[in-house]
């Protein structure tokens, strides 16, 4: 078994929750160590600029 999976199966989960806060709450309620990321979609202008930059570079 991969060491990473073996570790996951042996250790307490430590979780980063990216998105819905409801999952943060229910993980916290179970006594799990968890941090919340309030993820936001990248602004569309940035995406267009990035595509242009990608082309140039």
């Amino acid at each position: 078994m991969s060491d990473k999976v073996k570790k996951l199966f042996r250790e307490e989960p430590k979780i980063v929750n990216i998105g819905l806060e409801i999952f943060y709450s229910s993980l916290k309620d179970q006594g799990i160590e968890v941090v919340q990321v309030n993820w936001q979609p990248p602004p569309s202008i940035e995406k267009r600029l990035k595509e242009k930059l990608d082309k140039i570079l």
Partner: peptide, 29 residues
């Protein structure tokens, strides 16, 4: 969401706060 003490806005800063993270739960579009 009263149970939320602190939220991070980037994955990097969240992982710095909890360095031994072994699982990510993702629910974004």
């Amino acid at each position: 969401q009263p149970s939320l003490d602190r939220a991070y806005y980037t994955i990097e800063s969240a992982l710095e706060a909890l360095p031994d993270t072994n699982l990510a739960v993702i629910s974004i579009p």
